[in-house]
Amino acid sequence: MELLHEDQVERSFLEEITAYPGGQKIRSCQQCGTCSGSCQMAGEMDYTPRKIIEMVRAGLKREVLTSKAIWQCVSCYACTVRCPRGIMPTELMYALRSIAIQQGYCSSQEDSAVFYNTFCDVLHKYGRIHEPTLMGTFAFKGNPFRLMGMAPLGVGMLFKGKLGLIPSRVANIDEVRKLMALTRPKEVKAS
């Protein structure tokens, strides 16, 4: 990595991260690389989990939050159960994704973010996930290739009786919505 310039560094970034459930322990990371070695998706990442942790500590907020790496994690927790320092890189990835979305760092081309937001919308509507609504809404949000790619799966599932067509709802949906309104961070546009 090239030399850091003062204007690249956001000193408050580390504090922002340590406020999240998975962020507290990253100060104690010893950079052993067990997380990267355990990661099935490391080969797909522009920065491995070990590097992401060090970049967070160095205050490289923009580089971390615009990286592809944070969206490659499959949440398998292999890193988390192996980390000798008790750090939870999976939870760290959740925190980074959330901040990237809320502060406008996330590209609109990031399919995973589109999918996850669609998931939250369906949950807000029914209190549960209605798979046909989730898959259908997501399929139509992208380019036509996405729809074409997903169609065989949808048709196959329908044919096998694997799609519940009538949505199952939470009766006290207000409770779920209140809870989401209370705990889902407010969106702040990046300056």
């Binding site: 999240y20 459930p21 998975g22 949440s75 939870e91 990835m93 959740y94 925190a95 994704r97 959330s98 979305i101 995973s112 973010a113 999918f115 996850y116 937001n117 998931f119 939250c120 949950l123 779920v176 809870l179 989401m180 209370l182 705990t183 889902r184 961070p185």
Partner: peptide, 13 residues
């Protein structure tokens, strides 16, 4: 998905 968008919400759910 919810953990990725709003980690705290997923725990409350």
């Amino acid at each position: 998905p919810v953990s990725s968008v709003a980690p705290v919400t997923s725990m409350a759910l």
